[in-house]
């Protein structure tokens, strides 16, 4: 297989993969994110932890704009997001073309896998490279087979998602994300919907990806895992960043200990 597929060494000059400044997100009167700022250096792994409802998934989903923040600035993978704003500075719209371009560079792995059940495993992995990046079917298939092999699912390429276990589906979903050769990989609680005995096969894949210097942001409840793979841990507490820093510091911080200690 071509070596270029796995070449994602960060460019020396690259700006941080994510720069988020003063993000605010509201649902009606409920402020889910209150002034959150976050920086993710190229080639690093950031874990976002926190209680349910603390806003971690919302923050992650702001990074590919599945959620549109109401205030703040975002720069992701060399794109400064051009928000349409009203005179008060509130975000009211997006540039659709930039949105499509951004999403081709940022891939997401979902808690519920969200595979497309009417496509085979191979079809799931080739769909976006073909439709979004314009790859030929042949090239997209090569790329897909490469990444399916990476996650140990090459022999299931012609199976349909309904025939796979949860862990297998999630590994296909990771291959689908990798096939876009993204600048940034987002994981939204990738093991929360799995049976306990299937968790490790998925964590193993993510661990390998972290080891090869991919830029990743991970929302997780797996504290031990977050501690092990992360360069940076962000502890979100009711919509604000409680503590952020290297995993050792964050997990030892008293504000985080109360939350994370029983699990870690």
């Amino acid at each position: 297989m071509t070596s270029s597929l796995d070449d994602h060494t960060p460019q020396a000059t690259a700006a941080p993969a994510v720069q988020a400044h003063h993000l605010v997100k509201r649902y009606g009167d409920l402020e889910v994110l209150r002034d959150v700022s976050l920086e993710v250096p190229e080639g690093s792994v950031t874990s976002i932890i926190g209680a349910s409802g603390s806003g971690k998934s919302t923050l992650l989903r702001c990074l590919n704009l599945l959620e549109r923040p109401d205030q703040g600035d975002l720069a992701i993978a060399d794109e400064t997001i051009q928000f349409d704003r009203n005179p008060q500075g509130d975000v009211v719209g997006l540039n659709r073309r930039q949105l499509q371009r951004l999403r081709a560079k940022v891939s997401m792995v979902f808690q519920q896998f969200n595979l497309w059940p009417h496509f085979s495993v191979l079809g799931n992995v080739t769909e976006a490279p073909m439709r979004v990046q314009g790859l030929s079917r042949r090239r997209a298939t090569e790329v897909a087979e490469h990444y399916l092999a990476r996650v140990g699912m090459a022999d299931k390429r012609d199976a349909y998602p309904a025939f796979l276990s949860g862990g297998q589906q999630q590994r296909v979903a990771i291959a689908r994300a990798l096939a876009m050769e993204p600048r940034l990989l987002l994981f939204d609680e990738p093991t929360s919907a799995l049976d306990p005995e299937r968790v490790n096969e998925v964590l193993g894949v993510i661990r390998d990806l972290a080891g090869e210097g991919r830029t990743m942001v991970l929302v997780t409840h797996e504290m031990a895992f977050a501690r092990e793979v992360s360069d940076q841990v962000v502890f979100l507490d009711r919509g604000v960043i409680g503590v952020a820093g290297p995993p050792g510091e964050v997990f030892d911080d008293p504000r985080c200990r109360r939350f994370a200690a029983p699990a870690a």
Binding site: Q100, A104, S107, M108, F110, L115, A128, R131, R176, M180
Partner: peptide, 18 residues
């Protein structure tokens, strides 16, 4: 149809028509 399937499509940059 579970909305997550559409969301995955959007997240990978497919257009609304796609």
């Amino acid at each position: 149809v579970p909305p997550g399937e559409r969301e995955a499509g959007r997240a990978f940059g497919l257009t609304p028509l796609q």
